[in-house]
Design a protein around this nucleic acid. Structure first.
Length: 432
DNA sequence: AGTTATGATTCGCT
DNA sequence: AGCGAATCATAACT
């Protein structure tokens, strides 16, 4: 221990002056068997060190030659490992202490968020994980709203940029790392650089690059957040449907009042007709059902209106059908026969009606076989024949209608609920 | 400005 | 997943 320290201090006293070596040296210089040629050896090492220290003052060719000479020197391996060890045990151990830090929680948050937003991770088509939960929420999987597709397009744009940038960073990182590694390997021939040190340097580079990556992730997250808030804002902006759309929806609703649950196909058709989305149709029916149920009285007028309208339409259709059938085959009677024609909106018009004089007509239903004329509207309203949902309308979907609080109960005339004093007399829905 | 109407969202249930 | 119910947010109305 002491001897070795002494050796290094004696060694020209150049580079290692003042350095003590903690822990002692593991590798004794080769050929140092006894003290017989010790002085010559010291001189030799002193020369080498001197040469190393003055190498930068020399010309390139001269230095190259010296470098080669040094590389081939018999003492080189021993001296190299000694220097490496000294280096290891001094400056580098400080840096080594702060290594292996746990994964940054901030980075983990960002990663999780990007994954959740569908920006990171495997591409799931143009959609994303949260789109279904955040953007469409109760909406159907088949949403085709403009905002939605816009959101998706923008999100995938962000995703693309993110991945391109990430790739660039990774590529740059790899290139730089390889470059530095090569450089260090090259230099390790003349400088005391251990593989461990190279490894450490690589990890430093990686850390630097990952901090850049974090910035990228952060800004991507911000972009997604901004996009999302904008999207949600846009959705919050309520625009009333067109009069025509409301008309179509109401027509369907009141003509299917006994079971206002349009099937998926019906919804699609309505959506198409109204130029709205399927989920909007679902929303509309959801709102309508609940609001109608809550305040039937309030909707009486509207119900009457649409009932009349449907009746008129039906009458027209019947008239047209009758005329047509009479023209085409005068021998075929169809008036009054069940299911002999196909009416667009005659599935099961099942309504509670109250005509202006206060007389209630509950449950007037127009079936597929009513004999209607425009001037017999009143007669239609007075009809009390209940249709059993076999009107043949393809848009119609039968729905669970039980006696315990089912939809039909609420509109069934036999329940003897006065339209004006039914459960709908409360106004809780519009209380806000 | 206050109220009502209405489309959308959220939550819990089945 | 679809529904009812409650609620939110905003358009439309008074």
């Amino acid at each position: 221990m002491d001897e070795q320290a002494r050796i290094f201090q004696t060694l020209g006293g150049v580079a290692l002056a003042g350095h003590t070596v903690p822990g002692g040296m593991a590798i004794p210089p080769p050929g140092l068997h006894d003290g017989s040629d010790g002085d010559a050896m010291k001189q030799d090492i002193g020369d080498i060190l001197h040469q190393i220290m003055t190498i930068t003052d020399q010309s390139l060719d001269e230095a190259q030659a010296k470098k080669h000479g040094l590389n081939c020197h018999r003492m080189k391996p021993a001296l190299f490992s000694v220097l490496c060890e000294i280096k290891e045990k001094t400056g580098l151990c400080i840096r080594g202490a702060q290594e292996e830090d746990p994964p940054d929680p901030q980075l983990m948050r960002l990663d999780n968020m990007l994954l959740a937003e569908g920006v990171a991770g495997p591409d799931k088509g143009s959609g994303s994980a949260t789109l279904t939960t955040a953007a469409t929420a109760s909406a159907s999987h088949n949403d085709n709203s403009i905002e939605h597709s816009d959101y998706r397009a923008k999100l995938s744009q962000i995703r693309q940029i993110y991945h391109t940038e990430l790739e660039k960073y990774e590529q740059a990182c790899n290139e730089f790392t390889t470059h530095v590694m090569n450089l260090l390997r090259e230099q390790s021939r003349t400088r005391p650089i251990s593989p461990k040190e190279i490894e450490r340097m690589v990890s430093i580079i990686h850390r630097k690059f990952s901090s850049i990556q974090m910035q990228l992730k952060q800004s991507t997250c911000e972009a997604v957040m901004i996009l999302r808030s904008r999207f949600l804002d846009a959705r919050r902006k309520r625009r009333n449907f067109s009069k025509q759309a409301t008309e179509i929806l109401n027509e369907y609703f009141y003509s299917h009042l006994s079971n206002p649950y349009p099937s998926e196909e019906a919804k699609e058709e309505l959506a198409k007709k109204c130029s709205i989305t399927v989920s909007q149709v679902s929303n509309w029916f959801g709102n309508k059902r609940i609001r109608y149920k809550k305040n039937i009285g309030k909707f009486q007028e509207e119900a009457n209106l649409y009932a009349a309208k449907t009746a008129v339409n039906a009458a027209h259709a019947v008239a047209a059908a009758v005329q047509k059938s009479q023209t085409n085959s005068p021998t075929t009677p169809n008036s009054g026969s069940s299911g002999s024609f196909n009416l667009q909106n005659s599935g099961d018009m099942f309504i509670n009606m109250q005509i202006p004089n206060g007389k209630s007509y509950q449950g007037a239903e127009v079936g597929a076989n009513v004999q209607l004329q425009v001037d017999t509207l009143h007669h239609v309203i007075n009809q009390t024949r209940y249709n059993d949902d076999v009107g043949g309308n393809t848009m119609y979907r039968s729905h669970g209608l039980d006696a315990n609080g089912g939809w039909k109960d609420l509109v069934t005339p036999s329940s003897a609920i006065s339209p004006t004093e039914g459960p709908g007399s409360e106004h809780s829905d519009t209380s806000n």
